[in-house]
Amino acid sequence: MTLRIIDGTAYERKRLDNQFKVKTTDLGNGHEETVITQGWEWVERSDMTPFAIQMAAECIEKNRNDPKAIEEREALNKERSAKRAKKAVRQLCKVAGADTLMTLVYRSNQQDLALCKKHLKEFVRRVKRVIPDFVAIAAFEQQDRGAWHVHMACRRIATVLPGADGIRMKSFNVLRAIWRSVTKEHGGNVDVSRRKQTSQRSAARIANYISKYIMKAFELGEKHSNRWTKFGDVTLPQSKRLGDFSTMQEAVAMVLGRQPEGSEIVNCYLSRWQDVFYFVVEKSSA
């Protein structure tokens, strides 16, 4: 039971059994994410006496200052922040139409995250000299040995790129040379993996791959430290409300029935308590 005491009146948060809200986000490139959530409302507890309300208020205040409760709230807030960041990264990858995975690693045991971010920013600045419309969403991960590396979801990296002397070279060699010119004595390497015609690696799967590191980064990272970043002109669209339904079954039927033609289901699940339904589609690769 969740209680709030406002101006001496107690309110309890309750689920609305007859309200299921449906929102969808069109991320472009054939990607769409739809979420059904059960409605909630704060209901006045008219059955509580003034004494009971006072006791509840004292209990809430005591819990607010309890060290264990504070620790639990901080952990919960951290988890919520991680989920928001994970969602943003996942959706940005889809909006960008990411079709390439790139990983930047150090040869040395470089454990300074601030330096890694500085190197990444300079790397992207130099990459834009040869790929002016370069777009990437990046997540940081620390290896078991302690060294940092960067996972990047990128869009449209050509097979060949112009090198420093103007001669066209394999993009892998150009990107590796740029990364090493930035990291200098730390050395490093670049792994590039593109989506091929027969590959199962779609923008949605790339998005899931990149976003999974966000939760890990929040678990291990320092408080208030950025765990991801983006480069290029890519922004998130606004979600659209599709309406309210009296039952989860009705809402799910509507969502499944409006699946765009030529799309395939990437992810679909119903929460344990049947209060959230998540549905993701993308343009079919067939």
Rank of each mutant, 00 (worst) to 15 (best):
T183K: 08
T247P: 11
T49S: 15
R205T: 03
K212T: 01
T183D: 04
V43N: 10
E58D: 10
R176W: 00
L101V: 03
N18G: 00
T25C: 14
H151Y: 02
V234E: 02
V89A: 01
R272Q: 13
A207Q: 00
G243M: 09
G163L: 05
V276G: 08
Y11V: 04
L113E: 05
L113G: 06
V276D: 01
R194A: 09
V252E: 12
I60N: 06
R168A: 08
N29W: 07
F218Y: 14
D191F: 07
A147F: 02
Q38W: 14
Q54C: 04
E222F: 13
K14V: 10
D275L: 08
D26Q: 04
F172K: 09
F140H: 12
K118G: 01
V124M: 15
Q142T: 07
A147Y: 11
N109I: 09
V276W: 00
A57Y: 03
A251S: 02
S171I: 04
M102Y: 11
R227Y: 02
E264K: 09
S284V: 08
A96D: 01
L220M: 07
Y11Q: 05
L104K: 06
L76I: 11
T2V: 03
L161W: 04
K86D: 03
T49N: 02
G39W: 05
G188M: 13
T24E: 15
I210F: 00
K216N: 02
E122R: 14
M1W: 10
D191K: 03
L115V: 09
E222T: 07
S81Y: 06
M248Y: 02
A82G: 13
P237A: 06
P67V: 11
M254F: 14
P260H: 15
F20I: 12
V174M: 09
E72C: 00
Q200N: 08
S239W: 05
Y269E: 03
V276N: 03
Q238G: 04
T24A: 10
K78P: 03
F123K: 12
V127D: 06
Q249S: 10
L27P: 01
K184M: 09
F277L: 12
K23C: 09
K21V: 12
R73Y: 02
L113Q: 01
M254Y: 15
G30V: 03
H149E: 06
A204W: 14
T37A: 12
L115P: 03
A204D: 05
Q249G: 13
D112L: 10
A98Q: 01
E250L: 11
A204Q: 03
M1K: 14
R272G: 06
H119D: 15
A164E: 06
V255C: 10
N189E: 05
G28N: 14
Q200L: 03
Q143L: 06
A177F: 04
K170C: 08
M248N: 13
R84D: 02
L161K: 05
V124Y: 06
L270H: 02
S181L: 11
A153C: 04
N65V: 14
A85Y: 05
A139N: 14
R107H: 10
D66A: 13
V192A: 05
I36W: 09
M215G: 12
L16P: 06
A85C: 02
Q200M: 03
E61P: 11
E222Q: 15
H151P: 10
V234A: 13
I157M: 05
